[in-house]
Design a protein around this nucleic acid. Sequence first.
DNA 1: CGTCTATTTGAATGTACTCAAAAGCGGTGG
DNA 2: CCACCGCTTTTGAGTACATTCAAATAGACG
Lengths: 193, 193
Amino acid sequence: MNTETILASVRRYISLNDEETEYFTSLLLPTRVRQHDFIEQNGETTKYFIYVTSGCLMTYFTDKDATDHVIQFATTGWWTGDLASFTRQQPSIYATKALADSEVLLLPRKEMDNLLEKCPKFEKYFRTIFQNSLITHQNRLIQTLSATAEERYTAFGQKYPSLEQFVPLKYIASYLGITPEFLSKVRRKMMDR
Amino acid sequence: MNTETILASVRRYISLNDEETEYFTSLLLPTRVRQHDFIEQNGETTKYFIYVTSGCLMTYFTDKDATDHVIQFATTGWWTGDLASFTRQQPSIYATKALADSEVLLLPRKEMDNLLEKCPKFEKYFRTIFQNSLITHQNRLIQTLSATAEERYTAFGQKYPSLEQFVPLKYIASYLGITPEFLSKVRRKMMDR
DNA sequence: CGTCTATTTGAATGTACTCAAAAGCGGTGG
DNA sequence: CCACCGCTTTTGAGTACATTCAAATAGACG
């Protein structure tokens, strides 16, 4: 399967020689998943850190009232998964499933450990990935705390235009922290203007 | 000033020889700040990544209605600051100020670049710091999206008991994403039971 | 003390939720 | 190709959680 996009991602931050490239790609498990398929289930210990080559995934939390809350959508070029479970090898509170037929590269936990040990320059790559992701999460937190549902919906559409083709409205509502019914009403109000 | 706690933090993840220890600590600017003092102001480009040796800081965002939103409280052993501004050298949307007289160690942006270049094992340290912080932010997002104000307040008290001594209720309200008035009413209800 | 800020209280209001039901839409099988 | 089924989206009425505004009370600090 296609390792072009992940290598491009890595090379934005570190340079790799042929041997390193070969070694790195040998650790990745290329996998096809179909729409509605799960890559990880909640309750189970997360096995993989997941890179999306094509398609679209979502990682989400299901609360005690059986309401879903989307932590992240991931399209081409994004990493996703449950970092807490992956890092600490404890049961996951998240599940990750495909919103469209997708191609992913799975990095098993042990192989990531090996990679970082044998080829420490990947520390820089993941440091940068996590740092950027942290910034994104802080921005989202600010948005959630300070903006109305309508403002958040508008901002979401502008920030992630490519997701509209994959993501049902009810999951966008979930990501925004509102009910599908209320998102529908927000959209109505926007249309009426 | 005391570099014990920051060295302990670093040594949890990587080991340093004397030369590395010496070099690392030489980059840090020990600074005392008094309650109400600012370390960084919004609108200005963030100069430092901030490590708290003692006391307590808060990093917060002020929205268009002049309402503050706390991104992070930082007590002994925590890093804080505006990563987005620090990383991209763009004007900050956050400010960081002291909630109590505090001692901090400031790591200037350029020195962090030098450190990571000359002593790449620090990539691992910061990768781990950011990874853990990301997990914390994801948990908080989940909480904010799925729990009521009362549940969040209770969880906050359990997770950060040490903060109660430093942080005025209005900032806890801000962190939880509610108004001070409503937090007061939540507390009343809890007392009445 | 007196002043300034933080916290509490109460009434009116608003934003978003719940529940129930209808309408829309896509896929599948006869 | 159409009819049906299941799931998503919309609509509406009633409700709940949280906000706003105004004012009183309590605390902290010089």
